[in-house]
Amino acid sequence: MNWNLVIGIIITSSPILFAFAMSPESFDMSWNQGRGDFLFALVFVVAELVGLKIVISQKRLILTLPLVAVMISYFIALEHGLKDYLLESSKAYDIQLIDSWVWMWDFMLMSLFTIAVLSIYFGTRWIRIAPAAPIFLGGSAVILSLDAFFPYDSLGPLQYVVPYLVQTNVWLVTLFDLGTAVARDNVMFLKGDFGGMALQVFWPSAGIHSIIIYSLVMGAFLLKMNIPRNRKSVYFALGIAGTIGVNVIRIFSLSWYAMKVTTDAEKWEAFHDIAGGIMFLPWLFVFLFIVIFVETRRAKKSEYVKNEITA
């Protein structure tokens, strides 16, 4: 067993594990309400590094320890005044969505940490060996920053497609006879078993952020694979289509919840906070697994045919 690699995985994962041990309640699965996505980044780290034949020297492992200390110190400092400072600093930039501003720093620093650690381990080869976690964390930081600085519908290009998703949802609500649904731009007026509710949909809630993050992670993942470019393009396009489909299902589920379960704003908001993460991220992992499974089978079949011809 490559014990130095195992130690390397533990070192890379240690800030996330420390943060979870110190503040498990902060690992909310909603994309801008907590650190829940850290756990998926952790899975990326383990999945990409396990089984590598590369030997990491003890010297390189030791060089990463100060970085671990910095990240752990950051999480401790958050609980002792740093978070209050970040909340206060948001006023200087006229930040309206304070949660996105605060969590942005967590994801940005964790992304920089993983890039630095992987660079120490593998040099510039980390981009080919294990890019998923840094890109996932960095992409999340970028999306949170956009949400913080350009709240609601102020970022026109990303908001552009939202009315089409809203119209699609109204069509589905009518198709499944859940109640009455009317769309006006990015607003849905719903009337179901428990009365009426108006839902205003902005680009993060519509899942546009998940399409961006998917594109980044899948692009890095496919870059590593030694397969023809046309198959990479097909996989990428299928993943985009699947991610859009997951977002349509998510918006539909939110409408169903309002029309068939409750119109209580607090209960609906709690469901809204978890609906995105529990749908998109499992879909991403399932799709990546399918791609790996298909390509592994193709490679084995190709090797078998090659051996038969040689024989």
Rank of each mutant, 00 (worst) to 15 (best):
W3G: 07
N4S: 14
I7N: 04
S14A: 15
F18Q: 06
F20K: 07
A21W: 14
S23G: 10
S23C: 10
D28A: 13
S30V: 09
W31K: 07
Q33V: 14
G36V: 08
D37Y: 11
L39I: 15
F40A: 06
F40H: 01
L42F: 09
L42C: 02
L42N: 02
V43L: 14
V43T: 07
F44G: 00
F44Q: 03
V46G: 00
A47K: 00
E48W: 00
L49T: 02
V50I: 12
K59F: 06
R60E: 08
I62P: 03
I62M: 08
L63R: 07
P66V: 08
V68A: 08
I76K: 08
L82M: 10
Y85P: 01
K91R: 12
K91A: 14
A92K: 10
Q96F: 10
L97G: 04
I98C: 10
I98R: 14
W101A: 04
V102W: 00
W103A: 05
W105E: 03
D106M: 07
M108D: 02
M108K: 07
M110F: 09
F113S: 00
F113E: 04
T114S: 14
I115W: 11
I115H: 07
S119A: 10
S119I: 00
I120M: 08
R125H: 09
R128F: 09
A130P: 02
P131F: 00
I135Q: 02
I135K: 02
I135M: 08
F136C: 02
G139T: 04
A141F: 05
I143L: 10
L144A: 05
S145Q: 11
L158Q: 05
Y160D: 12
Y160F: 15
P163I: 06
Y164A: 13
V170C: 04
T174N: 15
T174K: 13
L175A: 13
L178Y: 09
G179W: 05
T180P: 04
T180F: 14
V182Y: 14
D185S: 10
N186M: 07
V187G: 03
V187C: 06
V187F: 09
G192W: 00
D193L: 11
D193P: 02
G196N: 06
G196Y: 06
G196W: 02
F202Y: 12
H209Q: 12
H209L: 08
S210I: 01
I211E: 00
I212S: 04
S215K: 00
V217A: 05
L222M: 04
L223K: 10
M225R: 13
I227F: 02
P228G: 07
R229M: 12
R231Y: 10
S233G: 08
Y235W: 14
F236K: 03
L238F: 13
G239Q: 05
V246C: 05
N247P: 01
R250S: 03
R250Y: 01
R250T: 01
S253V: 01
S255R: 00
S255H: 03
Y257I: 05
M259E: 08
D273T: 11
M279S: 11
L281W: 12
P282C: 11
L284M: 15
F285P: 04
F285Q: 03
F285L: 15
V286N: 08
F287A: 07
F289L: 13
I290L: 15
E295T: 10
T296G: 11
E303S: 13
V305N: 12
T310N: 12
